[in-house]
Protein backbone atom coordinates (compact mmCIF):
# COMPACT_ATOMS: atom_id res chain seq x y z
CA UNK A 1 0.00 0.00 0.00
CA UNK A 2 1.99 2.98 -1.24
CA UNK A 3 -1.04 4.83 -2.59
CA UNK A 4 -1.09 7.31 0.30
CA UNK A 5 2.46 8.44 -0.38
CA UNK A 6 1.64 8.61 -4.12
CA UNK A 7 -1.41 10.71 -3.31
CA UNK A 8 0.63 13.05 -1.10
CA UNK A 9 2.86 13.69 -4.13
CA UNK A 10 -0.24 14.40 -6.22
CA UNK A 11 -1.62 16.83 -3.63
CA UNK A 12 1.71 18.67 -3.41
CA UNK A 13 1.98 19.07 -7.19
CA UNK A 14 -1.65 20.19 -7.42
CA UNK A 15 -1.16 22.71 -4.59
CA UNK A 16 1.93 24.17 -6.26
CA UNK A 17 0.06 24.64 -9.52
CA UNK A 18 -3.06 25.97 -7.76
CA UNK A 19 -1.14 28.58 -5.78
CA UNK A 20 0.73 29.75 -8.87
CA UNK A 21 -2.60 30.30 -10.58
CA UNK A 22 -4.13 32.13 -7.62
CA UNK A 23 -6.74 29.45 -6.95
CA UNK A 24 -9.23 29.79 -4.12
CA UNK A 25 -10.15 26.14 -4.38
CA UNK A 26 -9.32 23.05 -6.41
CA UNK A 27 -12.46 21.23 -7.54
CA UNK A 28 -11.08 18.42 -9.71
CA UNK A 29 -7.82 16.49 -10.10
CA UNK A 30 -7.22 14.48 -13.27
CA UNK A 31 -4.71 11.61 -13.29
CA UNK A 32 -3.50 9.29 -16.04
CA UNK A 33 -2.61 5.88 -14.66
CA UNK A 34 -1.18 3.02 -16.68
CA UNK A 35 -2.19 -0.55 -15.82
CA UNK A 36 1.54 -1.32 -15.31
CA UNK A 37 2.11 1.57 -12.88
CA UNK A 38 1.64 -0.64 -9.84
CA UNK A 39 -1.02 1.49 -8.14
CA UNK A 40 -4.60 0.54 -7.33
CA UNK A 41 -7.29 2.99 -8.43
CA UNK A 42 -9.69 2.24 -5.59
CA UNK A 43 -6.98 2.88 -3.02
CA UNK A 44 -6.08 6.16 -4.72
CA UNK A 45 -9.69 7.33 -4.45
CA UNK A 46 -9.71 6.49 -0.76
CA UNK A 47 -6.34 8.15 -0.12
CA UNK A 48 -7.41 11.23 -2.10
CA UNK A 49 -10.03 11.98 0.53
CA UNK A 50 -7.54 11.60 3.37
CA UNK A 51 -4.63 13.41 1.72
CA UNK A 52 -6.67 16.47 0.70
CA UNK A 53 -8.20 17.21 4.13
CA UNK A 54 -7.45 20.74 5.28
CA UNK A 55 -5.96 21.79 1.93
CA UNK A 56 -7.24 23.79 -1.06
CA UNK A 57 -8.13 20.42 -2.52
CA UNK A 58 -10.55 19.40 0.22
CA UNK A 59 -13.81 18.20 -1.32
CA UNK A 60 -12.34 17.92 -4.81
CA UNK A 61 -13.12 15.05 -7.14
CA UNK A 62 -10.49 12.66 -8.46
CA UNK A 63 -10.86 11.58 -12.08
CA UNK A 64 -8.62 8.76 -13.28
CA UNK A 65 -8.05 7.83 -16.91
CA UNK A 66 -6.75 4.29 -17.07
CA UNK A 67 -4.22 3.64 -19.82
CA UNK A 68 -3.96 0.07 -21.14
CA UNK A 69 -0.60 -1.62 -21.75
CA UNK A 70 0.57 -1.19 -25.34
CA UNK A 71 3.45 -3.25 -26.69
CA UNK A 72 5.33 -3.03 -29.94
CA UNK A 73 4.95 -6.33 -31.77
CA UNK A 74 8.35 -7.26 -33.24
CA UNK A 75 6.65 -9.32 -35.98
CA UNK A 76 3.81 -6.97 -37.03
CA UNK A 77 6.01 -3.95 -36.25
CA UNK A 78 2.91 -2.27 -34.87
CA UNK A 79 1.72 -1.04 -31.50
CA UNK A 80 -0.80 -3.46 -29.99
CA UNK A 81 -3.00 -3.06 -26.91
CA UNK A 82 -2.73 -6.00 -24.50
CA UNK A 83 -6.07 -7.43 -23.33
CA UNK A 84 -4.42 -8.40 -20.03
CA UNK A 85 -0.98 -8.08 -18.44
CA UNK A 86 -0.46 -11.80 -17.75
CA UNK A 87 0.82 -12.36 -21.26
CA UNK A 88 3.17 -10.09 -23.15
CA UNK A 89 2.36 -11.38 -26.61
CA UNK A 90 0.94 -9.70 -29.66
CA UNK A 91 -2.85 -10.28 -29.44
CA UNK A 92 -2.95 -10.69 -33.24
CA UNK A 93 0.01 -12.96 -34.09
CA UNK A 94 0.97 -14.26 -30.59
CA UNK A 95 4.64 -13.23 -30.93
CA UNK A 96 6.22 -12.49 -27.52
CA UNK A 97 6.86 -8.77 -27.19
CA UNK A 98 9.13 -7.31 -24.56
CA UNK A 99 8.93 -3.67 -25.56
CA UNK A 100 6.33 -1.67 -23.63
CA UNK A 101 5.19 1.57 -25.29
CA UNK A 102 2.55 2.56 -22.75
CA UNK A 103 1.31 1.36 -19.38
CA UNK A 104 3.73 2.63 -16.73
CA UNK A 105 2.33 6.19 -16.67
CA UNK A 106 1.58 7.79 -13.32
CA UNK A 107 0.84 11.40 -14.20
CA UNK A 108 -1.13 14.39 -13.05
CA UNK A 109 -2.82 15.64 -16.16
CA UNK A 110 -4.61 18.77 -14.95
CA UNK A 111 -6.60 20.38 -12.17
CA UNK A 112 -9.77 22.43 -12.23
CA UNK A 113 -9.62 25.50 -10.00
CA UNK A 114 -11.83 28.34 -8.86
CA UNK A 115 -10.40 31.84 -8.85
CA UNK A 116 -11.99 35.05 -7.61
CA UNK A 117 -13.71 37.31 -10.15
CA UNK A 118 -11.51 40.27 -10.99
CA UNK A 119 -12.88 43.50 -9.43
CA UNK A 120 -15.16 45.42 -11.84
CA UNK A 121 -13.28 48.14 -13.75
CA UNK A 122 -14.34 51.59 -12.51
CA UNK A 123 -14.41 54.46 -14.91
CA UNK A 124 -11.80 57.10 -14.23
CA UNK A 125 -13.31 60.27 -12.79
Amino acid sequence: MHELSIMQNVVQAALDAAKQSGAKRVTLVRLRIGVMSGVVQGSLQFCHEVATLGTLLEGSRLEITELPAIIECPACRSPRTLPNIQSFRCPICQTPAARLLQGRELEIESIEIEIAEPPAQEDAP
Binding site: A13, A14, L31, E107, I115
Partner: peptide
Protein backbone atom coordinates in the same frame (compact mmCIF):
# COMPACT_ATOMS: atom_id res chain seq x y z
CA UNK B 1 -16.01 32.63 -8.94
CA UNK B 2 -14.41 31.70 -12.25
CA UNK B 3 -13.54 28.09 -13.04
CA UNK B 4 -10.35 27.35 -14.92
CA UNK B 5 -8.41 24.27 -16.00
CA UNK B 6 -4.69 24.25 -15.25
CA UNK B 7 -2.60 21.76 -17.24
CA UNK B 8 0.11 20.07 -15.18
CA UNK B 9 1.22 17.01 -17.19
CA UNK B 10 3.81 15.87 -14.72
CA UNK B 11 4.91 12.49 -13.44
CA UNK B 12 3.66 11.94 -9.90
CA UNK B 13 7.01 10.38 -8.94
CA UNK B 14 9.07 13.02 -10.78
CA UNK B 15 10.98 13.89 -7.62
CA UNK B 16 11.98 10.25 -7.05
Amino acid sequence: MITRIVEIRKGVLKKN
